[in-house]
Structure formats: structure tokens, C-alpha cells
Amino acid sequence: MTAESSRPRVPQGAGSARPGYNYAFLDEATKREIRRKLLKAVAIPGHQVPFSSREMPLPPGWGTGGIQVTASLVGPADVLKVIDQGADDTTNAVSIRRFFAETAGVETTTSTRRASLIQTRHRIPETPLAEGQILVFQVPLPEPLRFLEPRESETRRLHALAEYGSAYVSLYEQVARHGRIAQSYDYPVMVGGRYLMRPSPIPSFDNPKLDRNPALLLFGAGRERRLYAVPPYTPVESLSFEDRPFAVERSPQACDLCGATDSFLDEIVADDAGSRLFACSDSEYCNERQRRLGRSVVAP
């Protein structure tokens, strides 16, 4: 059990937020603007909607986009989970969770199943999401065409006209250079057969989870001031060539802690002697499995 969830439960409701601050930190007008932009993003799946990103009490690049989305959506009835690279207990995840516990008085959890709202950096949880859940991604670079086209006016035009030839050029280059599509993170996807989208730096291992996911997927890029969304059950296709189909790279190992063979593994240096072990990047998933196997839980 983590520190926060063992903390005495704060009574629910706006009044429970930290005095002197607005509920969930942002003022109501700002949250309303973000919600309006999110509605537009949901209406045009995969399309980047500009928004007036606010100053947040942490530097851009630390998830200010995701936090603004979460702040605009969170309510007293929510249960919030925050993960960073799959883990609930890294500094970043802990700070953001504490931030919302204090400013919104919201209940927090590490359980993917229990959470109504999950903010994530660079992973999609292993436990399948359900209808009604919202997953908020922190996005550093939203523009999938930036690699070949530096001008924003031009990338917007390319999206508007669905001219995505250049996206395939970068895949072509990877195959030409490495014999295969070597991109293992932030692998571009086509949303609803219309908009090309960067899924944020999740491993391509997670890409299949984007496809027809029952949860609402929201993406916030604070520094780049863009919001986008994948509504529930939207088809999401990873770009590929007919003769080089998209394939998830699975590690040959099983998790050294829980024995899982179906999860995304991190390689961890275990001791000063440099011995390595492989463990699930999703800490809650790993802990849950260890508990079910009756092992004493070791945090990955």
C-alpha cells in the first residue's frame, strides 16, 4: 500500500480542496476552455486542437499538458491514478498525485481497475481499461510530421488534406537503414482512418491497446499547446507497409518478479555487481500478480 491511500480519507467535495487555491488549481474559466477544446478533440479523433496552455507549478516537460487536462476533468467523485513509465511510485507520479489530492481533495489509488481517471507518462496500463475510464497522456511532442516538415503552417495543411506520404518516408528510411521498422517508441498511428497521430512516447508494445479501446484517451501537450483525443472504440492503426506489417516486439524473458510473459518489461540493474533483472514496467500489474502468487511483494 502506498503512503497516500493509507492516509486518512479527506471528505469529498470542492470544500476539501486546499484553502487559498481554486479547486484543482486552475480557475474555472480556464478549465471550461480546456473542456471545450477537449470536446472538439473528441469530435475530431486524432486532430490536434490548439489551447492556451497555462503556467503550472512545475516546468514544461514534466507533464503540464496532462495535468491541465486532468485538472479540467477531475471532480470530487473521481478516483485518480498517476503513473510514470508504468510506475505509481516514481517522484513524478507521486508529486502529481499529491498535487491533486491537495488541490482537488480527490481520492487516489494505484489500482488501474478502481481508477476513474488515470494520468500517464509513456505507458498504457497492462490491465485492460473499461468503459467510463479516462486515460490522460502527457505529450512532449504532438506533431507526427515534424521530422520531415519544420513549418507548422505546412503540417496543419498536410493534416487538413490528409497528405501523409512523408510519414511513410520516415518508415521507408528505417527499413532501408535497419532492415525493419526500428521505431520502438512514439510509433505513429492513423486514428479513425483519418488523422495521423503521435501516441506520445509509449512503447510500440502499447500501440495495439490504442485500437478500439473502451476508455476515452486524451492527450495533452503543455509546451506545444495542443490537445487531442481518441474516443472509446475508435479504430487506431499503426502505420506499416504491406510487406512489413506492424509487429510488437516481445522480449523473450518473463518478468523476474511475477513471471508475466505478456507485459512490457524494464531491464533493471539489480546490484552493485551489475547483475540485471527484468521486471514489469507496470508496477501495479506486477504487484497484483505477485500477491496472487502468494509471494511477498517486491516493488519493481
Partner: peptide, 20 residues
């Protein structure tokens, strides 16, 4: 971008999706 990628771009823009 490689010579091949340069030549292939217009084909890819036109929907060609077979690397070979």
C-alpha cells in the same frame, strides 16, 4: 532522406504501401 526515399515519396503520397 535516401535516394530511394526521395523517389518513393510521391508514390507513397499516392497510396503505395509495399516496401519491396
Amino acid at each position: 532522406v535516401s535516394a530511394g526515399g526521395n523517389i518513393g515519396e510521391r508514390l507513397m503520397a499516392g497510396g503505395a504501401r509495399h516496401y519491396g
